[in-house]
Design a protein around this nucleic acid. Structure first.
Lengths: 235, 235
DNA sequence: ATGTGACATTGGTATGACCATTAATTTAGC
DNA sequence: GCTAAATTAATGGTCATACCAATGTCACAT
């Protein structure tokens, strides 16, 4: 009789550290340009050797998420200086347009909003609220709110509690958002657009807090539709 | 007079090792599938520490040129497996369930169905019809219809005319049907399930032919819901 | 023949030390 | 006082060694 053996997930320690740091970046806890903890402190804080931490960091450096500066520290690369994402490369070949990306996001994120409305715990909601607040702050201080923007959408992804969805969003983060960024600046040129987007994010969060999947989906649909319309009128 | 100083970039030792190995690969001295020297031997041969060699190798692994296999060695990845599935890699380790996959498909494919209803040309419709017919044939000949099944969903993807969606689905199905084919066989065990699925595929195609995005979406939703319910009742 | 288990090989992790580079701080020189 | 050189502290880069973990091999017992 086949004893129902439990799996155990092996996974390298390095990769676990890798995931954790990457997640901090995606969640916006580590902002672009910011310096991360020194390797020695990180290793102590995580309870692993410096060797392991270095492996994880090196991986992130190769992927273009971090940047090493000997004698200074390790820093989070700002998205616009990122290059050489293997996925992004694959995209170029296929002449993907912004609208293509938005269409896919329409499917992925509307669905995600519904899932989040059912499963989000208060921690997830806190992350979403924080991203919203941060975006307001960034905007009122004159900067663009693109990073807080992505932080919001990533927070939503985590709230789905669906590892496949999170995985997808993590890996497509770069060209789902960054690819848009340069064009996004046009969207942010008009203060009215920013206000509208902030309002839309708020509406989505509200629906999720009310545990209303249908309205959450619809709010997300309107949000993405708004962005789509903007680009459509521009071209 | 500003002497045109020559750069001389001492460069990291790791990077020097990195360059050397990479060059060997490009020159063909290290052929695809071949095993490279063990780290310990390499470090001795190059006169550097194993740490440094590991850094270089890790970089090449991240870039997809090499592949680590603990207990065996490090191997040169063949070019055709190189740009391979970003999804499948980290998926194995993750605790992704079938339901996670289906939830994401719910978002992606319902959306795709709507797009296809608007954009599918008669060629796309022909492909879908063909997959349906092929699946019928396979089933009635006793074999499983998994390949024709994927063919249907991929035909739908192509019909969206969205290169991003196609790219996602390609990788998605690569992974999907490697990992859970055996579970799928349970679904196909019962002839009634097969008939139902054939019927559902037909309904989706019909809605697309009628250029009815709303009904196409709904038909797809019911289809995936059906599969979800099946697995839910099974566990 | 078969399969069980010790063994050798190889990548993964842990320590601890020291080197190299950079920025901040202090000190020497004028 | 001010500038420039020297010192120092912080941080990433490298080294050496030991041991852990996974994998395949092969002799040995059954």
């Amino acid at each position: 009789m086949p004893m129902p053996l439990q799996p155990i997930k092996p996974k390298n320690i390095s990769d676990q550290v890798f995931d954790q740091i990457r997640e901090s970046i995606f969640r916006g806890q580590l902002k672009a340009g910011e310096q991360i903890l020194p390797e020695r402190e990180l290793s102590q804080a995580l309870g692993v050797s410096r060797t392991t931490v270095r492996n994880a960091i090196n991986k992130l450096v190769v992927l273009g998420l971090l940047e090493h500066k000997q004698g200074q520290g390790t820093f989070v690369r700002s998205p616009d200086t990122r290059q050489g994402n293997p996925l992004a490369a694959a995209m170029e070949v296929q002449d993907a347009t912004i609208n293509d990306l938005l269409e896919v996001r329409m499917g992925l994120e509307c669905n995600a909003a519904a899932l989040a409305a059912v499963r989000a715990v208060k921690e997830d909601l806190a992350f979403m609220d924080a991203s919203l607040e941060e975006m307001r702050a960034e905007v009122s201080s004159g900067r663009l709110g693109t990073e807080a923007d992505t932080a919001f959408h990533m927070a939503l992804a985590y709230a789905t509690k669906n590892s496949v969805h999170v995985y997808l969003m993590k890996n497509f983060y770069d060209f789902l958002f960054v690819g848009i960024k340069k064009n996004l600046s046009h969207l942010y040129e008009n203060p009215r657009n920013i206000d509208e987007i902030l309002r839309q994010h708020g509406t989505i969060i509200a629906a999720i807090k009310r545990r209303d999947p249908k309205e959450a989906t619809e709010a997300m649909r309107r949000h993405i539709q708004f962005v789509q319309d903007f680009f459509r009128n521009r071209l």
